[in-house]
Amino acid sequence: MLNGVNKLQVKGEAMKDIYRGTLVRLASESPETMAKTFIKWDRDSEFHRLADSAPAQLWSEKKLKDFVEKGQEKQGDKSFRFSIRTLENDILIGSTGLWIQRWSQGDAWLGIFIGEREYWGKGYGTDAMRLIVGYGFSELNLRRITLGLHSYNERALKSYQKVGFQLEGRVRGEGIRDGVRYDDLYMGILREEWLALTK
């Protein structure tokens, strides 16, 4: 009886599928599938240089599979990772996750990338962003979420702003590529800001 009452009362929110957006869904992959996809995306150096500040490098499929396996072992402890699949045709297009530095502070770092180039600039990443941020606040009960990006990644900046992230600062010359120093931007969204946006 009590169960029945609870279900009715929370139906509106809790019954919502938090893994499903309008264009994509969050999923989990076998290490084999993920490694096969990563080895393809890794060859696209522009993709790597948009998403990461570590030097671009090429790993074997075996090593990539090991990385994914290791990540999955730690899943749910301090990291929460998902693959991103399109609702239409169920295509694996990217990956996203939250990394919690200190549970006591309720703050997490967000990472996201769309490896499939045909899905850049069409709202797929932004849709996935709303899902992962929603997961952080409604499932992990975070207080805030932080992310960083290279200042030359304008597409990412626009997407993060659309989702509700605010610019919190600019680290001068944090990286250098092709002989050019660039800044990194840091953004954050507070729980109360997200709740106000999604009310």
Binding site: Q105, R144, G169, G188
Partner: peptide, 12 residues
């Protein structure tokens, strides 16, 4: 040193 980033309310 210059202040560069201010993560709002990050410490409780």
């Amino acid at each position: 040193f210059m202040e560069e980033v201010r993560r709002r309310k990050a410490i409780h």
